[in-house]
Design a protein around this nucleic acid. Structure first.
Lengths: 200, 200, 200, 200
DNA sequence: GATGAATGAGTCTTCATTCAT
DNA sequence: GATGAATGAAGACTCATTCAT
């Protein structure tokens, strides 16, 4: 007499994650309590622990989601037909508008937490590696097609791109109501210069 | 028969701030408790509240200090005699080595907190404005001396520079044990391209 | 078309009791949770309550088992052919080696619990009475055969024997890694003196 | 401007210990909660942790007190002038009347806990050693005065005495309302036989 | 028979803060 | 200035138990 659990279970899990996400965005990683999350999800504290082992486990699960959002933006770029490098630059430029919504702060919180919590450090570093690998891949594709200068150290360039992404995210918190498009345009120019290479 | 209070008072205040700073670096903004700080400072909790109204007040005070560290790096630049723009680029490149010590994480924590705490928001934005102003000033000085291309929008370029600073700080957390110098060198190249101008 | 339920039911009950026993030995009466027991037994919490009304009911059932172990050691003695009193003394001496395994601690826990839980008190006292009765019976058999001195108050002697049994169990917890055999030998001498009588 | 803390502090500490003691006797080691203890002591939970690091610390402190009660009964015996061995036997016989008051159950609870909690194990074993040492000392004094037979292994005899003490304590829980004096008298006879030696 | 979702009061402990001295 | 006693709400998490399926 089996139950159709797996589906229901996963649904509930996702509901709880969504509720937790809202709480974390509202109050921060340490600011949001298990009790808050339970209220938001409409469940009892005991029940939450049926789905997650600990608050940290919830944070870890959500962290991957938060970090994935950025990664997904770049995944698939190297499969494009046209000028891959240009697409990359455009994509990075598009990061600027994202205001203090989509949990940018939370990424910075886990970045800070990664200093003290080894588990978080793992997550962050794994994400950093994969993000860097994706961008390096895009750049290599560009090199094959001649859109990226041949002598570019793609690994270091990818590292720079990741840092630019972080810098733009920080910018959205530093100047929440400013028009960040012009600065993003400058960044695009800079990246184009780096990637295409124009001066000796 | 004057009392030396004001001096002593300020000394003690600074001692407490130093102790709090150590605690925050060790455990984070929420992770460090008033009790921890008191132990570190060697005073009683009641006494601490003679010097600071609340934990938030301590954080606010220290935040300015943390942010100032970066500002001070750039403050004297426009008064330099030589190539001001080159000095700026060098200075930004120097940020890379700073590992996950010196409270880099704390800057990201207050960045995140600024989303939720208006007082923090004020502090962050004031600091961002002043940092941008300083860098814009350096660039304007460079324009006068011909080291910076005349048609550069110095305000936007300063914004970009601030974002690069943040990006490099994030990088030091994302890749704590990597050699970040090569990436920093690429950043320097990019900034030079932006500032001196090589485009058509 | 009879159902095999009653048999299966009892089997499952015993399985659960065995699992609970393991848990209690591992973590103590309060330390072991229903959840632990369910995991150990490989069943769901809801299911466990089909077999036992409550955790206390499980403990009560097992308590009888724990206490019975000691009772069973002495049960067949009075039916022996040879010197019954000597066999009793030997049997008591054999208690010493039992280390802090076999749930000796649990007997002391229910002894403590009996102070506060009347149901436990009932169980303990019933067991004490029956154990005393068995030993008194053995002694009476010994008196008939002349192995036990005729003027011995067998009821009081049985009470003493029970206390000696408890004392030896406590000893196995107080000195878990000591060789308790020499002390047990002294006890045997003492009991022989009591039973055979050597006084004036 | 020093405070007269040390005195007040110790007083409060003792008050809390007394309250905790009452709670533990009423509900057992795990059954009594910090909250119960705070209510009984008339303080807030936060305040309790000003005086004790943890519930375990309270239990450890009280454990020593509980165990000491028994030890104190025997301390001083070897300094007596008269027949030391007889005094020891009398003292052991006096243990019987102590009903289920004075926290006998709690001693058994820590005895059980000592199996699982190393800190408790330490306490129990230290106490066992000191109790055994005291009784062995009394017996040695008796040997010098000729009250104890010269060939007695005093260490093993002391071990037996400790077990008898535990056995009598268990008896007070097994038969709370019985007259345990006759059984205690038998024990005294047995011990006299062991100590003075009457056999061949 | 059997599952596991669900509860909510309860666990120990920590927190920022206040107050009498 | 300085102490540390005192608070009590809140922290994360666990518990024995019930119920719909």
């Amino acid at each position: 007499m089996r139950k159709l659990d797996p589906i229901r279970h996963e649904e509930k899990r996702q509901e709880i994650l969504a509720a937790a996400n809202r709480c974390f965005e509202r109050s921060g990683l340490k600011g949001a309590s298990i009790s808050d999350i339970c209220k938001e999800a409409g469940i009892s504290p005991g029940h939450l622990y049926h789905y997650f082992q600990s608050k940290d486990a919830i944070i870890a699960t959500l962290s991957e989601a938060w970090l994935s959002r950025t990664r997904e933006r770049f995944e698939g770029l190297s499969a494009l037909e046209g000028n891959v490098a240009a697409a990359l630059v455009v994509e990075i430029g598009r990061l600027a508008p994202s205001g203090p919504n989509s949990g940018t702060e939370l990424v910075f919180e886990i970045l800070a937490e990664s200093t003290r919590n080894p588990a978080m450090g793992e997550i962050i570093q794994a994400h950093s590696r994969s993000l860097r690998a994706i961008i390096a891949d895009v750049l290599r594709t560009g090199q094959k097609r001649g859109d990226v200068r041949a002598d570019l150290d793609v690994e270091q360039a990818a590292t720079v791109a990741v840092a630019v992404v972080d810098g733009l995210k920080a910018l959205s918190l530093r100047a929440p109501q400013a028009d960040r498009q012009p600065a993003a345009a400058l960044f695009q120019n800079m990246l184009e210069g780096l990637i295409k290479g124009e001066g000796p």
